[in-house]
């Protein structure tokens, strides 16, 4: 505890004496953290849009012309037991024809020559939107296709695959960009603390000769890095809050479609950002101070 009190006194002295370089580092850290948060939020929002689109995604299971009612019931039971399926809609031959007529509108006359209803009955299955992995859907479609009474299973394979690829690419870009920015933040703190460390080299040498322990020497630098990261994170959180509030209140007035891309902003972000800043900056400071050798 005494070590912390002493170190904090030393940190506040240094923060004041080196205020400009500290301010510059804090602002750089806050810009970096804001960029990471913006990327993460963009990915979350894109993902939410994709999930919303995917909500209506389903498999259409066409039944054989000669399917028995027992087979139809058995299929319905099987679909009901499947946890991945959230909605089952049965389209009878008659309903399918009715829907076709409605779709054709004035052109429904082309159906006049038909002696019998050529359309098959079908099941429309809606899948859980978070399970829309193309491989998984493909396996499920193939499984259903082999069930008794099923003629064919159709679904938007290419569409699903594209959505999945976009979502995956966004996440990968966020991880790479986020990682790069985190490294940059660590490097910024590293450089600042390294400068302070060199400026106080004589003092550190004297302290070592007087019998100061490693923790006594290192702690002020680590705490200074922590405060830089924490303050950078707090500024970043305030900026994010400001931008988000402005977007929600003002921009939506003029561009209502922005609402489609805006998901709710988790409150935890405002705590996680300063903490992330602090952790990354402490790592930078740890590397800067290095190993103290006597």
């Amino acid at each position: 505890m005494k070590a912390f009190i002493y170190s904090f006194q030393s940190v506040f002295r240094s923060l004041w004496h080196e205020k400009w370089i500290n301010l510059l580092t804090i602002l750089s850290v806050s810009i970096g953290l804001s960029l990471v948060t913006a990327f993460i939020m963009l990915t979350i929002n894109m993902d939410s849009v994709i999930q919303r689109w995917a909500k209506n995604f389903g498999l259409v299971v066409y039944l054989k012309a000669n399917v028995s009612s027992a087979e139809e019931t058995s299929l319905k039971n099987l679909f009901s037991q499947d946890d991945d399926i959230i909605e089952i809609k049965y389209i009878s031959k008659e309903l399918a024809l009715k829907e076709l007529r409605a779709t054709l509108g004035a052109n429904e006359l082309i159906l006049e020559g038909l002696n019998e209803n050529p359309l098959p009955s079908s099941y429309e299955l809606t899948l859980k939107s978070n399970l829309l992995d193309p491989e998984r859907v493909k396996r499920k479609a193939s499984l259903i296709e082999h069930m008794s009474g099923v003629e064919e299973v159709q679904y938007g394979e290419k569409w699903l695959s594209s959505l999945y690829t976009i979502s995956k690419a966004m996440k990968a870009v966020t991880i790479i960009v986020g990682g790069a920015i985190f490294i940059a933040i660590a490097f910024m703190t590293y450089s600042t603390i390294k400068i302070f460390f060199y400026r106080r080299k004589d003092e550190i040498e004297t302290l070592k000769l007087l019998g100061a322990t490693r923790i006594f020497i290192r702690l002020p630098f680590l705490l200074e890095g922590l405060i830089i990261g924490l303050l950078g994170g707090i500024i970043s959180s305030l900026a994010i809050f400001g931008i988000y509030s402005f977007t929600s209140l003002k921009v939506i007035e003029f561009l209502p479609s922005v609402r489609l891309f805006m998901t709710s902003f988790p409150f935890q972000v405002y705590i996680i950002v300063p903490l992330a800043g602090a952790v990354v900056s402490v790592i930078g400071s740890l590397i800067a101070v290095g190993k103290i050798r006597y």
């Binding site: 040498e205 000769l209 019998g211 322990t213």
Partner: peptide, 22 residues
């Protein structure tokens, strides 16, 4: 050991030739 050196130095007062005053 490295980590024990400070405890030795606390028992040894040193008057340096170059003073080492801050």
């Amino acid at each position: 050991k490295q980590k024990t050196i400070p405890y030795l130095r606390r028992n040894v007062g040193i008057v340096f030739q170059d003073f080492r005053l801050l």
